[in-house]
Simulated scan of single mutants.
Amino acid sequence: MVAELLTEGLVRERPLPPRGQGRPSVALEVEGKRHLALAWEIDVDRMAVALMNLRGEVRARVALPPAPPRLEEALAQLQEATAPHLKGVRVLAAGLSVPGLLEPASGHLTLAPNLGWFDLPLLERFREALAGLGLEGIPAVVENEANAAAYGLYALGGLGAEGEDPLILEHCVYLSLGVGVGAGVVVGHKVYHGARFHAGEVGHIPLEPEGPPCRCGKRGCAEAFLSYRRWLEAPSEARLAEMAERLAQLLAVVLATLDPGRVVLGGPLVEATGEALLQAVRARLPRYALAVHTPEQVVLSPLGREAALLGTGALALDFFVETSYEEA
């Protein structure tokens, strides 16, 4: 295995200082400049490109304006932003994340309501865009943005406290609070998709049967109370307190149902309110949650706005390793 990795240039040897008699020792280190994963993010408020090495380090990053009306236009813009960064590198795999319901295995996008997209062969279109960059045939994966962010936080985010059992982070939830409300769930090192690939739609958990209407057609859904748009309508201490109360209700359901080691808060609403929202939620959580769950389990995303983009890159790298080396 090491010989194959050396031949492909994915790892390299580095001599160690001599220690006594005998053959000098050689260290192996991951190559970090030429062999990269490509990550594309499409979202309502922006698009982005990143090239990431096998250590999880970003070698290039480009932020773009919000997604245009058509998928083909979005992919063309991502192609154009990526092309200048491909000289002299080998792209091992590529990933694309979108805020929508999709089937990762087939790559079919069922619905991305906030983008206005539905019933699209997303993975097929993604592969065509990669081929246009000369990347035909590389491993490619598509994923929901909250799932990608959850995986990125698990794999790259450093969520564990010093001395904490690392097994606790095999189960974590990322709660995305933006135009919509969604969640990504990692269970036992893997993204959990559910029987129909729609796990994590926590924004449509009803919190108040007679509450405000939700775009899904029901009333009082979590999303109706916790959207970023609602915060922008009346940013104030009173609105923050009200949202913290509703978020504590939602978190109690998530904690009781999934028992994660961490629930990580991210998205535009969290970026706007930050520590104030976190402390208000933690103060209210004991009123709703079981005693076994503590307020300290709820944290802010250490990756900020980059969680989905970095998670997409991490998923692409894992897919490369799985498809290239697992059977070996």
Rank of each mutant, 00 (worst) to 15 (best):
F225H: 02
V321L: 10
R230V: 12
L232R: 13
G266N: 08
E233F: 04
E271D: 05
T294A: 04
E208A: 02
L303G: 07
G266I: 08
F320V: 03
G267S: 04
L309A: 06
R282T: 14
T273F: 02
E306Y: 02
V298G: 04
D259V: 06
T323N: 10
A316K: 07
V263C: 11
T323Y: 09
Y228M: 13
L269S: 01
A272T: 11
L258N: 01
D318Q: 14
A244I: 13
A224Y: 03
A291L: 12
A252G: 06
L300C: 00
F319W: 11
T294F: 03
Y288Q: 03
Y288K: 02
P213H: 15
E242K: 06
F225I: 14
K218G: 11
L290R: 13
L277N: 01
S227T: 08
R239M: 13
A224G: 08
A234C: 13
R284L: 15
E237G: 02
G211L: 04
T294S: 08
D259S: 12
G304W: 06
R219Y: 15
L251K: 05
T323C: 11
P286W: 06
D259Q: 11
V263G: 13
G217C: 14
A241F: 00
G266V: 06
P295G: 00
C221M: 15
V263M: 14
L317G: 01
R287H: 13
